[in-house]
């Protein structure tokens, strides 16, 4: 009889504990999402403005471009017909098997 009561009390206690923990979770979860978004934003902003930014500015000082944009704009500016083909050589044939393990 005592055993039964004791077991019932434990089950009830666990149930109540679950309810309390779920309630805490429902309050903390949205807060944690906001914190995660803020931290993500800060970290990505650091990577972008410092990492990408420094490389970009340094390369531009050396006149390096990563996308060919100015060429197009210049061709359009001249309003003439550029006779240069824009097809670029990129021969792709069967390679040795090891080459296909590469992700680049």
């Amino acid at each position: 009889m005592h055993h039964k009561l004791y077991k019932q009390n434990i089950v009830h206690g666990i149930y109540m504990l679950k309810k309390v923990l779920n309630a805490i979770k429902s309050v903390l979860e949205p807060i944690s999402k906001v914190i995660a978004n803020v931290i993500n934003f800060i970290l990505l902003a650091i990577v972008y403005f410092i990492g990408v930014g420094m490389v970009s500015l340094a390369m531009k000082l050396f006149g390096k471009h990563f996308l060919e944009l100015k060429k197009q704009n210049k061709a359009m500016e001249n309003k003439g017909v550029s006779h240069e083909s824009n097809w670029q050589e990129h021969t792709v044939t069967k390679q040795p098997l090891e080459q296909y393990y590469r992700t680049f």
């Binding site: 972008y48 403005f49 970009s56 500015l57 680049f104």
Partner: peptide
């Protein structure tokens, strides 16, 4: 994938700082 990532990075390097939201 790494070739594609190279192209994506090139876009951001070329268009810095205008491409921040796209990067994010």
């Amino acid at each position: 994938p790494l070739l594609k990532f190279e192209r994506l990075l090139s876009q951001h390097l070329e268009m810095f700082p205008l491409s921040f939201w796209s990067f994010y």
